[in-house]
Amino acid sequence: MGNFVLLDWIRICLIAILVYLAYYDLRTFRLPDVITLPLILLGLLFNSLSNQRFISFQDAIIGAILGYTCLWLLNLLYRIVKKQDGVGMGDAKLLAALGAWLGWFALPSILLMASLTGLIGGIIWLQWNKQNHRSAFPFGPFLAIAGIIELLWPQTLQTLLLSKPV
């Protein structure tokens, strides 16, 4: 019972941090290193030292590396084509943190959910703020929402997409 309660508190704290990061990114267009970098480290430590870890330490390391590298490469390609940044590195660090906590196998779901909600949310954001399609909008909130969904209901997207209709 005690370990179950501890995992619940860890999930609650992680959700609170993700909600705060989403709010902060909406207000400032920044994801502060003072939060994202310790979040990566805490995810790695939790999954390496805890008996109640979410994933193996190896999956956490791979998740952190792939999470960061994926958005870093996407930004590099965008910079080559458009001569400007397309994704902030705070977003890459947030995805690395989600990879450290939830593992590399959660990253495709997180990215797909964040991209779909970001597409819809981005259109609403740009309309609300009366900006054109070339204007920037924060992607961190969508990563945070997708991370929370994956934390609370793991592999929901795979279940929805791959389940056989009855």
Rank of each mutant, 00 (worst) to 15 (best):
A64K: 11
L161Q: 04
L151C: 05
N75M: 15
G43R: 13
M89N: 13
Y23N: 07
F29L: 13
P154W: 00
L26A: 05
Y20S: 08
W72Y: 11
G118N: 02
F105M: 12
F105N: 10
L98V: 07
D25W: 06
F54L: 08
A106G: 00
T36A: 15
Q58P: 03
P138G: 06
Q58R: 09
I55K: 06
W104G: 01
L37N: 09
Q58G: 13
W104R: 01
G118C: 12
P38R: 07
L119A: 14
G43W: 09
Q58K: 13
L76K: 15
G122I: 01
Q58T: 11
Y20L: 07
N132H: 04
L157E: 01
L77E: 11
G118F: 00
M89G: 09
I110N: 09
I120D: 03
W128L: 11
L98R: 04
K82T: 03
N47Y: 03
L152D: 00
L45N: 08
S50C: 09
L21I: 09
K130D: 11
S163G: 07
P141D: 08
L94Q: 13
F54H: 13
R79I: 08
D91V: 14
W101D: 15
G43C: 10
Y20D: 03
I55H: 02
L151F: 08
N129D: 07
L44R: 10
L102T: 00
W153T: 08
S135E: 10
D33A: 15
L71V: 12
H133M: 14
A64E: 02
A96W: 11
I61N: 05
L151Q: 03
V19D: 02
T159M: 06
A60L: 07
F105T: 06
I124R: 02
A92E: 12
V87Q: 04
G118H: 01
L39Y: 04
L162T: 05
L162Q: 06
L26N: 05
G122K: 01
S115F: 08
N129C: 10
F139K: 02
G90Y: 04
S135A: 14
I80L: 15
M113L: 14
L44C: 05
L21R: 03
F29H: 08
P32T: 13
G121W: 01
L111E: 07
K130Y: 02
C70R: 04
D25G: 07
M89P: 05
G103L: 01
S109L: 09
M113V: 13
G122F: 03
C70N: 03
S48H: 07
I120K: 01
S56H: 00
W104C: 02
R79L: 09
L98A: 11
N129M: 06
L39T: 11
L161R: 11
K83E: 10
Q158R: 09
R79Y: 03
S50L: 15
Y78K: 10
Q158L: 13
T159A: 14
S48Y: 11
I149H: 02
I149F: 00
K82V: 10
I40C: 10
S135F: 07
L71N: 10
L107P: 10
T28V: 06
L37M: 11
F54V: 07
A96Y: 06
S115M: 10
A60C: 06
A114H: 00
P32Q: 12
F57E: 11
P108V: 04
P141V: 13
L37E: 11
Y68E: 14
G118I: 00
P138D: 03
L77V: 09
L157G: 01
D85K: 04
L77D: 07
L160K: 00
F105I: 04
T117H: 14
G103C: 06
A96H: 05
